[in-house]
Design a protein around this nucleic acid. Sequence first.
RNA 1: CGAGGCGUGGCGCAGUCCGGUAGCGCAUCUGCUUUGGGAGCAGAGGGUCGUCGGUUCAAAUCCGGCCGCCUCGACCA
Length: 491
Amino acid sequence: MADVITSREKDYAQWYLDIVQHAKLADYSAVRGCMVIRPNGCALWENMRRALDDMFRETGHENAYFPLFIPQSFLAQEAEHVEGFAKECAVVTHSRLMENPSGDGLLPDPDSKLEENLIVRPTSETIVWDAYRNWIQSWRDLPILVNQWANVVRWEMRTRLFLRTMEFLWQEGHTAHETKEEAIEETLRMLEVYATFAEEWMAMPVIRGVKTASERFAGAVDTYCIEAMMQDGKALQAGTSHFLGQNFAKAFDCQFQNRENRLEYVWATSWGVSTRLIGALIMTHSDDRGLILPPRLAPTQVVIVPIFRKDEERTVVLEAADRIQAALRAAGVRVKVDARETHRPGWKFNEYEVQGVPVRLAIGPRDVKNHKVEMARRDKPGKEIVSQEGLPARIGAELEDIQQHLFDRALEMREASTRCVDDYEAFKDTLDRHGGFVWAHWDGTPETEARIKQETKATIRCIPMGADKEPGKDMLTGNPSERRVLFARAY
RNA sequence: CGAGGCGUGGCGCAGUCCGGUAGCGCAUCUGCUUUGGGAGCAGAGGGUCGUCGGUUCAAAUCCGGCCGCCUCGACCA
C-alpha cells in the first residue's frame, strides 16, 4: 500500500484531511487558508450545483451576478451586519503596484490609494439591496427571486479544507417580497429545498430548525438551518435560510408603494449553501478506505476496468467493455472505461475505491467468454459475478440501492448518537462519552445558553421545527421550558 | 492571537539528542519477467538539508534571529 489513509478511530481530523487529499478533491495552495479545488472536487461541486440550480428554477428563481467588491461604507449601513462581518473582511485599498524604491519587490503605489476602500464580499446582502432599491418601486415589481453562484471571502483565523476556508464557493439567494408572510413562506420553502437536497441527493439526513438569537445570521430576524451529524458525533450546519424582515430594506432605503398606496419597506430573505457541503458529504459516508459518494452526485457512477494480458485478449475485452459502457450510457448512467495501460488493474481498483466511485465493473477474458462481468459496490465489501444480460437495469437498481443504503446507514448512525437528557450532569457526561445530538430543555435565555456553551462547548444547534411541544424544566436553571432543543458540539 | 508540530531529491519521510560531508519508500529512466487487488528482480539519474547569522578544523545536526506552513484552542458557513 502506497498511501495509507489514517483510520477514523486513530485520528478523525487527520482521516478527513487524508480523504480530501487522497481522493484528489482539494489541495492546499500557496495562500494560507485557501484551497485549490481539484477536478474531482470541482466535478462534485458542479453536480451539486446543477441539482440545486434546477430546484431553484423549479421554485421560480433566476440567476444573476453582483460585484465581487463592495464599498466599505455599504457594510456599515446595517448595524448588526457590520458587527458580524467587519472582523473578517479582506479590504482593497490601492489599485496599483510599484517597484519598492528601498529594495526589491513591489509596493502598493501610494498615489493609487482608493477614495473609498472596497471590501471583498463576505456575503452580498448590502450590494444586492443597494441594487434592489433601483429595481423596486411598486408592489407590482415584487417578488424578486434571485440567486447567484459566487465566491466569497471571510478572513478566518483557522481554516479546514472545505469546512472553513478563507475563500469558498457558494450560492446566495436574495429575495424581496411584498409582505412579511410571503417572505417567511419563502424562507421556509428554501429551507425545505435544502433539506430535500441534503436527504435525496447527498443521502444525508438533516434536522430542520431555527437558530437561537445568539446563533442568528448578522442582520436577520430569524435564521433557519439544516443540521447534520458527522460520523464523529459532531454537528455540522449544512445550510441556512434567513428571514431578514425589513432590516436591509431600511438600511438601503428600499421602499415600495403597496396595494393600499402607502410606502412600505420591502421584506427580504437570503439563503445559502457552500462548498462546505463537500466536507459534510465526506464526513457522512466515507470510510477508512477512502471516499464514498452517493450515486446521484458521483461524477462517475460506474467505472469499468478491463483486464487482459495478450493482444488478442485486449481486443475482445476492450470491445466488450465498450459495448457495456455504451449500453449503460444509453440508460443514463455516468460510466467510464479505464483502459489505461500505464496502470494495472489492482492499482485501478484501489484508486477508484479511494475516490469513491459507487460501482466498479471488472471484465477479463474469462468474463467475456462467460458473458459475465464482476461487480463491486463501494458501500459494501465483496464482489459479485453478474450476467451482461440486462446489465443496465441491474446497475440502475444497484445505484438506487446504494443511494438508499447510504441514507439509511447515516440515519441509523445519527439515531444511535442521539439522546434525550434532563439533568445537567448527565448532559455533560453524555457529551463527553458519546458526543452526538442531545435533546434537552432550555429556558430560552441567552445567559443560560452562553453558560452551557462555555462549560460544555456544546451549542444549541437549533430549535426543531415540526416537533410537538413538550413542557419541561431547563436542565441548568430549572426554569420552565416549552420544548426540547437540539444541543451538540459542532464544526 | 495563544499552544504544539513541521520545513531534507517531484511526493512522503529517516537522520538532529551524541557534529565527520546525506539515506529510505513512492515516483522517474533502462532491461528482463509480469498483468483477475496498489507487480518482482537488477541497474541508473535526481538534494548548496526553509532562510540569515554565530560557534567549530568540520554543521542537516549545536546556538541565535527571521520566514513559511500544518494541527489544536479562542472567532466563524
